[in-house]
Nucleic acid binder design. Structure first.
Lengths: 179, 179
DNA sequence: CACGTATGAATGAAAG
DNA sequence: CTTTCATTCATACGTG
C-alpha cells in the first residue's frame, strides 16, 4: 500500500541483538528467528524498483540480484524479495478492488478459451514493460518478466532462453520449500 | 518511505458530525486523528453480519456493499470493513486458541463450526484421541504454549508451497532436460 | 496523567 | 494471481 501514511514504526534497528532491552521491546528477541523485518533502506530500494522501475513480478534471476543488493543493508533472503513483490502488488490491487465501484463482470474471453487456458494473462515470449517505451531509466534488466515470459505450455519457446535463470529460480524454490 | 503524504487527510468529512445519531452519546467529537472509529451502529451491523449471517471474509464486492451501507452511519472506507472482519476473525480464533490451550475444559466446536474450519489439521493443541479415551477430562494436550505451538503449526502447514507458480518452472526445467 | 486493554492498521508468510 | 493467517505496531479510550 503506498498511499498510506507514515504512522509507521521505523524499525531500522534490525533484528538480531535482543539485548537492548528497551522497555517496550522487552521480549521481542525471537524476532530474529521468525520474520524478516526489512530495514528502511531495503524498503526504499524495493519501492524504487517497484514504482520507478516497474518491477512487479521479478524473475528468479532478478530476485537473486535484488536480494544480493539488499543484503548489504541487512539480512535478507530471496524469498523475502519474492514475497515482498507479491504482497505489494497484491495489496495494491486489492485496495483498488474494494475501493473502486462495483464491477460489471467484463467477459474477457469465450468460455472455451477460458477453459483451455488456466492463466489467460500469460503472454509468452514478450512482456509488456510499462516503461520500456522510452528506453530511459533502464536498469539493465532483460525484458523478461516473471511468470509471464515463461509459460509452461509454450515451454519449447523458452528452451533457449535461460538455463541460468531457471537454475537460479530453483534456488529460490528450494529455499522456499526448505524453510 | 513516501516522504510526501505525511499530512493526514482527514477526509473525515465534517459532515455527519461526531456524536451524531445514536449510541455512544458522549464520545469525543474531535477524534480527528488517524484511525477509523466505528460508531455503535456500524459495530452493531458488522456484528450482525458476522454472527448472524456468517460473514467472515467478505469478498471485495461484499466489502463495497457493506461499507456503502455503513456509510450512512458515519464515515467509513472499504478497507475499514476489510480490516474489521480480518481482525475480528483473527482475534476470535486467537482467543479460542488461547482458552483451548490453557484450559482443560475444551470448548468443543459444533460439528458445523468444525466443518467450517478450513485448516482442521492445524487446530492447535487439540488432541482428538483424548476425548474418546475415557470420556473424562483427560486431554492429551501437547504442552505447547504461545509461540512454541505456533512454530509447530507452521511446520505442519508448510507442505506444498506455491504449487501454481513453482510447478510451472519445474515443468520447464524437465522439458529442458529431456530436450 | 500513567497505564492497561481493545482494536484499527499493516505486512511477512504461505496456502489456494 | 488471490485470499487467508499470524503477528506486530500504533493508538483510542477507559480507569484508578
Amino acid at each position: 500500500m503506498e498511499p498510506q501514511q507514515q504512522q509507521q514504526q521505523n524499525q531500522q534497528a534490525p533484528n538480531e541483538d535482543c539485548g537492548g532491552g528497551s522497555g517496550k521491546g522487552s521480549f521481542l528477541c525471537r524476532q530474529s528467528s521468525t520474520r524478516w523485518t526489512p530495514t528502511t533502506d531495503q524498503i526504499r530500494i524495493l519501492k524504487d524498483l517497484y514504482y520507478n522501475n516497474g518491477v512487479r513480478s521479478p524473475s528468479a534471476d532478478q530476485i537473486q540480484r535484488i536480494s544480493a543488493r539488499l543484503r548489504q543493508y541487512g539480512k535478507i533472503e530471496g524469498k523475502n524479495v519474492f514475497y515482498w513483490f507479491q504482497n505489494h502488488k497484491a495489496r495494491e490491487r486489492q485496495k483498488k478492488r474494494f475501493t473502486t465501484t462495483t464491477n460489471h463482470h467484463v467477459p474477457m474471453q469465450s468460455p472455451t478459451t477460458a477453459a483451455n487456458n488456466k492463466y489467460p494473462n500469460i503472454t509468452p515470449g514478450y512482456s509488456p514493460t510499462s516503461l520500456s517505451s522510452t528506453g530511459a531509466l533502464t536498469v539493465g534488466q532483460i525484458g523478461n518478466y516473471g511468470y509471464g515470459s515463461i509459460s509452461m505450455e509454450k515451454s519449447f519457446r523458452v528452451s533457449a532462453v535461460c538455463t541460468l535463470c531457471l537454475e537460479s529460480y530453483i534456488l529460490v524454490i528450494s529455499s522456499l520449500k526448505h524453510r
